[in-house]
């Protein structure tokens, strides 16, 4: 079974398997924002995972 959470950056739908473990990283398919899973009294929630700055050209 999959639970769907909303990306806070773009409102996209992030599919999370319900047997997810605390600390797993998920990214939003629409905008690429990365989240870390944490379990808040039994409920699966997301918090921003920091993205290492890549070389983006100029």
């Amino acid at each position: 079974m999959v639970i769907v959470l909303e990306c806070s950056e773009c409102g996209g739908r992030i599919k999370i398997p319900d047997d997810v473990l605390e600390g797993e990283i998920f990214s939003c398919p629409d905008c690429g924002m990365e989240y870390e899973v944490y379990i808040n009294n039994g409920k699966v929630e997301l918090k921003h995972a920091e993205i290492e700055g890549e070389d983006w050209g100029e």
């Binding site: 409102g11 629409d30 905008c31 690429g32 924002m33 990365e34 890549e54 070389d55 983006w56």
Partner: peptide, 21 residues
């Protein structure tokens, strides 16, 4: 998203990381 819903040939591209933002 509201306007383009599930248009087959429109892709919304505003990524927060990577080199194709």
């Amino acid at each position: 998203r509201q306007f383009y819903g599930n248009e087959p040939f429109i892709r919304l591209v505003r990524d927060v990381k990577g080199i194709f933002r």
